[in-house]
Nucleic acid binder design. Sequence first.
DNA 1: ATTATCTTGTGAAGAAATTCACAAGGCCGT
DNA 2: ACGGCCTTGTGAATTTCTTCACAAGATAAT
Lengths: 212, 212
Amino acid sequence: MKRVADSTVRRLSLYLRYLEEFEASGSSTISSDELAARAGTTSAQVRKDLSVFGSFGKRGLGYDVADLTHRLREILGLEREWRVVIVGAGKIGEALAQYRGFRQRGFSIVAVYDSDPSKIGTAFQSFTVGDVRNLAEDNRQQPADIAILTVPAEAAQQVVDEVVAAGVRAVLNFAPVQLQAPDHVTIKTVNMALELEGLSFALTNAETVRSA
Amino acid sequence: MKRVADSTVRRLSLYLRYLEEFEASGSSTISSDELAARAGTTSAQVRKDLSVFGSFGKRGLGYDVADLTHRLREILGLEREWRVVIVGAGKIGEALAQYRGFRQRGFSIVAVYDSDPSKIGTAFQSFTVGDVRNLAEDNRQQPADIAILTVPAEAAQQVVDEVVAAGVRAVLNFAPVQLQAPDHVTIKTVNMALELEGLSFALTNAETVRSA
DNA sequence: ATTATCTTGTGAAGAAATTCACAAGGCCGT
DNA sequence: ACGGCCTTGTGAATTTCTTCACAAGATAAT
């Protein structure tokens, strides 16, 4: 099977979000044109994205909303619950630990860790902060699938090594560094300063150059 | 002047980050190869990215670290301080309000707003939460350049309209919705659930399909 | 049953981004 | 001053992504 572009997967997620809204609003069928309008893309793009995984529509009619919703959930792996641990009990970790958007989508935060002795054992949302050194052992009972890293940049690589050793195969990294991991581990980095710098560039070059 | 790709700008930011590290470590010159290795790309890519803005290197020698650092800061518009307001005094807003990475890079948080009467007037990091309805007036004195939105999805579009009316031309949006704004306003959306779904896809399709 | 009207699925065309590959310089040691 | 060794800057080739455009179905009305 051929490799699927990251941009395609992102758009599928978007489509799913708008489909769910559409489902709530009652209509049972939707065209690639309508979906494209909501997701901010073109109908051809929608159809191409879906065609990677099969043909889900009916010519002349469009897509059955409930059916396509289900198929997209399946494709994205959202039919099951994913066990997520947060490493780094700072403000960002706290914000993510209580973020409803995650649980709503089947991502269940199961534990929060830190390496700072002054934080370990303290209450943190509905969790008690664990010692990151117990992560591997805790994982032996019921392994986590995904680790969210909200640790300082200097500590991030070591934490990745630890969670990978503990069996985690996907990492969402909020530390502003490039991380190394074996091929079978997927890492996504969210770098908020980078996003702001993109805005700075756009503001600075507004008259001459327009960012794509 | 031709349009600059978003991906190019992102990489320039990365290069800048690694150049700064390199600068601290003492070396005065760096090759596109070394820079590429750190940023996780290729030397040809580094040279192409830089060539959009000029030729900053010396053949046979590489780039002067201090000079290139300066040029990149100039290109990205980081030589000045940007005034940033946060709208939405929830956990994520709080985390961002105290995030050191922003100030370090010249992004100065100047105020925090909310629309919830129970939050307005309360202390929030080193700020007092303001009423979002005063934003336009506050902005008349010393306008903010960038607004960070950490409000619920339902409220986001209205807040965008308000900050745009108040003169803000760049928005970093954390609400999981597609926002509309005039052409002269740049919006970047960070959708954390989307990132997790990308990981879910990768985990689900690990054996058959590999995400790019 | 036939016609008119939709909308999908998809090859082909086009555009954009990345990688290749090499001439043009520049430095250093002798 | 010359030869050997680096590394840039950049057209050209390649790859990847997006858009076009239309045949193939499907529905509905008469």
